[in-house]
């Protein structure tokens, strides 16, 4: 077992453990900690896939900004362990878990079928050896982002501005869900 293989299995274990922690913990702070574990491990997975810049962005945006947002809102609420963290009803819960199982079975079955039908993607180095040296670099990423997708990129800027203004307006609003006393 080489170092790369061990790294993948370790990170996969960390990701799954963190995700299960998010779903199964009743205290929301523990859920947030599980989400941090998952985010950092996903950033490391990006490094093993040679997407170094995305790994940095993942760490800064998710593990930095978004998680700080989550944890600050949780601290603001001061929630104790929830009395009813999970949804009610054994039959409805079984239905929901069953639907998740069906979906995951479909996805894994599709992968297995594709693996049997076409070994090209799974064969080691057949595709990756030719072009993966260029993928890791930042320059082709920047060229693709600012030449081919420049309008989408600018639209994202507008979207973020609208979101920022809308969030401030929403949290200061006096109508709707706000107490009128």
């Amino acid at each position: 077992m080489t170092a790369d293989t061990f790294l993948f299995w370790f990170l996969a274990f960390a990701i799954i453990a963190g995700a299960l922690g998010v779903v199964l913990m009743t205290n929301p702070i523990h859920s947030a900690l599980g989400l941090v574990l998952t985010m950092v491990s996903v950033a490391a997975i990006f490094v093993t896939l040679q997407a170094y810049f995305l790994a940095g962005v993942q760490l800064i945006v998710y593990a930095g900004a978004v998680m700080v947002l989550f944890v600050m809102v949780l601290m603001l609420f001061d929630l104790k362990n929830e009395i009813q963290a999970f949804s009610r009803g054994r039959i409805r819960g079984a239905l929901k878990i069953g639907s998740v199982g069906i979906l995951s079975g479909l996805i894994v079955g599709a992968f297995a079928k594709a693996l049997i039908a076409n070994q090209a993607l799974g064969a080691k180095g057949s595709l990756a050896s030719t072009a993966s040296t260029a993928v890791g670099a930042i320059k082709p990423l920047a060229e693709n982002l600012f030449f081919n997708h420049v309008f989408s990129f600018e639209l994202l800027g507008v979207l973020l501005l609208v979101i920022a203004v809308g969030t401030v307006a929403l949290s200061r609003s006096k109508g709707g869900t706000h107490d009128r006393n």
Partner: peptide, 25 residues
Amino acid sequence: ILSAVLFSIGMAGVLVRRNIIVLFM
């Protein structure tokens, strides 16, 4: 497959949990 497993866990969380912040997570 790791991605599929992670997606399924997230979907289970959205369906089963009741706290809205855990839903966003």
